[in-house]
Design a protein around this nucleic acid. Structure first.
Lengths: 406, 406
DNA sequence: GGTGTTTGTCAGGGCGGAAAACAAATTAGT
DNA sequence: ACTAATTTGTTTTCCGCCCTGACAAACACC
């Protein structure tokens, strides 16, 4: 009898038969979606065996999922085993899809991901968005999104949800509001107020959170609980706990940038002293490396480091040690399966990782710690946009009744 | 569409009608249990209105809950309102109960809590358990537990589960094993191997976790997400996230004691430098205050501080500042609703709180922070034993089918 | 005492999964 | 080539659970 086992959330309302159906639809669809990589396509009987449902129940559920366009029956391939061969099931590669949109400081992006999680349309254009009026930026993004949606329609995909990744604070309580995006110069922007077409308004979400979710949904490491660090302007961490994004009581969880790494160190604009951001933030690293801010300072820094520039290497080493110190606190508190460096950090990983690893090894001592648990994201800066599109897809897989019954 | 909304755990198995029934039984019982304090006892119709279930369904569920001994029908009191008066429902004060057991360094404890969460039997005896063979300690505890259970039987209570609070590591993976309890000198102790009566073997659980759960279940502050700090020999934190104990990927979450508060500070036996434990741990505070270890050093320290001893006050201030620094990291990462000082810290709160508050105010700057969110536990050192008994009770409320149908 | 209101229960129906039987499609064996 | 064995997918029957609607019971108000 482990603590927490069986302690379902008492706030959850009563269960109805529709909830049961919904849950079982999700179980069947999720089983097919997750097992694709495993051992070839599944049949109804396979799904029944894996889930514990009856073949009859699975048949009924699969019929409904096909009717909603979530599943497809493939051509039956000879299996070689004795007995009647099963009809192969697969998540539809044409049909429902998710549209992801992104506003960055220097770019706009749009992508469409199908139910299998594969990116089918990808658009990215460079734009200097800082300081531009939100209305203009969003109008241009809407255009880009419409193009992507049209291209997806040509592939047989139908967009079922739209999510907008923004580098800013999107409070949990006030749906649809971008409270503050310092790098863009946005305050209290509500996309719905500026979007040209009221039928295609996207839901905003913080880009670091989306990047972490993309990492969880797509990455190879099967970590269910991990910390995803991303540095754009500030240093933010997104916490994935048991496969769920953890936002904290008020949505401010993961403020890694203001963890104290040197209690009496340099003052930070936030008012405290010795915040991580003053040691491992973009501005601090550039200053230490003796570089001026440019259009893409991350690439510049990576080039200098690759060329063996001692100042750049020293700056990155110092940043890595500070980051490692802060992450040691995170490991001690959260005990994650993995630590993932994403966003800009992913591209500097080669020079950051040794210092971070060394600091972690020295500071995480009271539990087993695998150095390989710290690694760089394979998605890099694509994570946020991918996550935005995947969010819709994963919501559909978690609740296929969101799809129209056709 | 908030991130995480509707993302139910895909690992969850299929739902059956029994699951639905179980859930609805829990909803009804939980509604009656939680609303007792609100506005007098509830009737079936009240429960139906609160939960959204039909009166007919509630009737059926209530009948089953009465049959299992979880609910009781009270004498109908005149309500004064028009219409047929409802039959008042209440959680049984006699019937199912939870037994809590505790092994401390200097005491043994046992208590019985009824389904309402009220402590009905409380036993605590002083014993120097450090270094004694586990078999002897557990035999004596079993005796104490049997006495408590007998006394509870006299009150009409029937013990449905037994939980043992221990100051040590109880891994999630290996059920029923106390891996290591340094203060007791125990290694790899499995209570089942030493318990006299195989029918009453308790399940061990870490006392800090249980203290935090007791705080959550009993405390007035309605925080769903908080950090509960307890200092016995080491400094441990238990994290309650959305009303659930968060253990981390491997069960090591909450190691507050080894968060670095001074990166190049004094070396710690763990191998790192500047760990919180070296500044705010019991041994460090006593040393700083110029006191020798005694039977109950916490009381000694509190006496000195109350008397205005400058060394004691200085030591507590230093500890408080170090604790505040570490907690600032926790707040930045977790964004909890509250921070609770429990265990021995609760008794020293008067002298610790100002320094902790000051440090938090200086370090938690990038979000709203209410100084009152930090407070001391009202349960103090009773929390662990209470939590052990409550764990069974809360499990029953979360799943009433655990009770025999009578 | 009659009326209106609220409560608790009962009967009927629908929904959804389980169990068992059955038809279909393939391989293995002779 | 033909039968037996095996596995799959569907059909049928059954059961559990909640919902809808109706009804008796118990109170306040007039």
């Amino acid at each position: 009898m482990a603590v927490g086992a069986g302690n379902r959330n008492p706030e959850a309302g009563p269960a109805s038969q529709q909830d049961m159906r919904r849950q079982n639809l999700a179980v069947v669809l999720g089983t097919v979606a997750d097992a694709v990589a495993g051992q070839g396509p599944l049949s109804r009987a396979d799904v029944a065996g894996l889930t514990g449902l009856t073949r009859a129940a699975v048949s009924s559920l699969v019929d409904e999922l096909i009717g909603r366009g979530a599943l497809t029956e493939l051509e039956t391939a000879p299996s070689g085993r004795v007995g009647r061969p099963g009809r192969a099931l697969a998540v539809s590669s044409c049909g429902p899809a998710g549209l992801g949109l992104e506003v960055g400081v220097s770019h706009l992006g749009a992508c469409v991901v199908d139910l299998r999680g594969e990116s089918r349309v990808w658009r990215r254009v460079e734009r200097a968005n800082a300081g531009r009026p939100a209305r203009r930026v969003l109008a241009e993004l809407a255009e880009l999104g419409a193009e992507a949606q049209a291209e997806a329609a040509g592939l047989g995909l139908h967009v079922e949800g739209r999510v907008l990744a923004v580098p800013g604070v999107v409070p949990t309580a006030r749906q649809g509001l971008i409270e503050h995006a310092p790098n863009l110069g946005w305050h209290a922007v509500r996309p719905a107020d500026h979007w040209p077409d009221p039928d295609t308004v996207p839901v905003p979400e913080n880009e670091a959170n989306l990047g972490a979710l993309a990492e969880y949904w797509q990455a190879e490491h099967g970590a269910e609980t991990f910390v995803h660090v991303s540095a754009e302007a500030g240093i933010g961490a997104a916490l994935i706990v048991d496969g769920q994004l953890f936002r904290g009581a008020r949505g401010f969880a993961g403020e890694l940038g203001h963890i104290p790494v040197d209690p009496d160190g340099v003052p930070c604009p936030c008012g405290a002293r010795g915040c991580l951001e003053q040691y491992a933030g973009e501005a601090a690293v550039l200053r230490e490396a003796g570089l001026a801010a440019t259009a893409d300072p991350v690439v510049l820094l990576a080039d200098r480091a690759a060329a063996g520039d001692p100042a750049a290497l020293r700056a990155l080493d110092r940043a890595g040690r500070a980051l490692g110190l802060a992450l040691a606190s995170a490991v001690n508190l959260i005990d994650p399966d993995a630590l993932v460096l994403g966003g800009a950090y992913a591209e500097l990983g080669e020079w950051l990782l040794p210092a971070v690893r060394a600091e972690l090894a020295a500071r995480v001592t009271v539990r087993p710690w695998d150095p390989e648990a710290l690694h760089c994201s394979a998605l890099g800066r694509r994570g946020a946009l991918l996550g935005a599109a995947l969010l819709t897809v994963r919501r559909i897989i978690a609740d296929p009744t969101l799809l129209p019954v056709a």
